[in-house]
C-alpha cells in the first residue's frame, strides 16, 4: 500500500468526524486524538519491528515481549485492585503463558525461532491473556461480593478457604472462557479473523492463511484456559488470612 492510498484511507476518519459534528455527539476531539495516536503508535511499532527483524538479536525480542507484558499488566491490574499483589500475579501469569506457548511452538518446530514469528504471536498471546485477565478479575470481584454470605457460611461450617471460594472461582473461570469458546464456534461463518484476512490481502495462499489462523486459535484456547485458572488460583488465597478469615474486599477501581 502506498502512502497516497494510506492518506486516502483517512476518508474513513472524516466520515465519523462529520457525523459527530452534525449530530452534536461531541466525539470529534476523542476521534481525532485516537486517530493521531494510532498513526503514531503503529508507525513507531512498524519501524521498531523492522529494526528488530533486521538486527536478528534475541535481546530485542525479549525486550519487546517484556514491554508487551508490562503494558498488559498495567492495563489489567486496574480490575484487580482488591486482590493483594495483583501486579506480580499478572506478570507471573503472562510470563508463564508466554514461555509455555513459545516452548511448544519452538520446541516442536511448529514455527521458526525468528523475530517475525515470535513477536507477532507473543503479541496475540499476551494481548489475549490480558483481555481474559480483565474478564476474569471483573467477574471474580463481583462474584466474591455477591456470594460473600455463602462463602462465610462454608467457612463457618468448617470449610477451608479453597472450599469456601470454590463456586465463585469456578463460575468466574467459566464466565471468562465463554467468549473465547463461543467466538471460535462461529469463526469463519460470521467473521474472518484479522490475521487470516491480513495474510489473504497480502497475497498469501488462503489455505496457508487458514492453517496459520487455526494454529493461533488453538493457541488462544490454551492461553484463555491457563490465564483464568492460573490467575484464579494465585488470587484466591490473598482473600483470606492465616486464620482462614475472609478479608474485606476493597471496592472501586
Amino acid at each position: 500500500m502506498s502512502f497516497l492510498s494510506l492518506s486516502l484511507s483517512l476518508i474513513f476518519v472524516l466520515i465519523p468526524l462529520a457525523l459527530s459534528k452534525t449530530l452534536n455527539l461531541g466525539l470529534e476531539k476523542d476521534t481525532f486524538v485516537a486517530t493521531i495516536r494510532s498513526i503514531i503508535q503503529l508507525l513507531a511499532v512498524g519501524y521498531i519491528l523492522t529494526f528488530v527483524f533486521e538486527s536478528g538479536s534475541y535481546l530485542f525480542i525479549i525486550l519487546m515481549v517484556a514491554l508487551m507484558i508490562g503494558a498488559a499488566t498495567h492495563n489489567a491490574q486496574k480490575k484487580g485492585v482488591s486482590i493483594r499483589g495483583i501486579i506480580w500475579k499478572l506478570v507471573l501469569t503472562f510470563l508463564f503463558i508466554e514461555v509455555l506457548t513459545q516452548a511448544i511452538l519452538l520446541g516442536f518446530q511448529i514455527t521458526p525461532p525468528t523475530a517475525q514469528y515470535i513477536i507477532p504471536i507473543s503479541g496475540m498471546v499476551v494481548g489475549n491473556s490480558m483481555v481474559l485477565s480483565i474478564l476474569f478479575l471483573n467477574r471474580f470481584t463481583s462474584e466474591i461480593q455477591s456470594r460473600q454470605k455463602e462463602t462465610e457460611l462454608l467457612l463457618s461450617l468448617g470449610g477451608t478457604p479453597k472450599q469456601a471460594i470454590h463456586l465463585p472461582l469456578i463460575q468466574s473461570i467459566k464466565a471468562s472462557l465463554i467468549p473465547t469458546i463461543e467466538s471460535q464456534k462461529t469463526i469463519g461463518l460470521v467473521q474472518l479473523p484479522g490475521m487470516m484476512s491480513g495474510q489473504i490481502i497480502a497475497g498469501a495462499d488462503p489455505i496457508q492463511a487458514v492453517q496459520f489462523q487455526l494454529l493461533i486459535l488453538f493457541l488462544l484456547l490454551t492461553t484463555a484456559a491457563v490465564t483464568s485458572i492460573m490467575l484464579g488460583f494465585l488470587s484466591y488465597p490473598t482473600l483470606f488470612n492465616e486464620r482462614m478469615q475472609m478479608l474485606k474486599i476493597k471496592t472501586g477501581e
Partner: peptide, 19 residues
C-alpha cells in the same frame, strides 16, 4: 486449627443463608 474450631463451635445465623 480454624476448621476444627468452627466445627466445635457451630453457628446458625439470623438470615439462615442457604446454598
Amino acid at each position: 486449627e480454624p476448621t476444627t474450631l468452627r466445627r466445635t463451635v457451630g453457628i446458625a445465623l439470623q438470615d439462615a443463608t442457604m446454598l
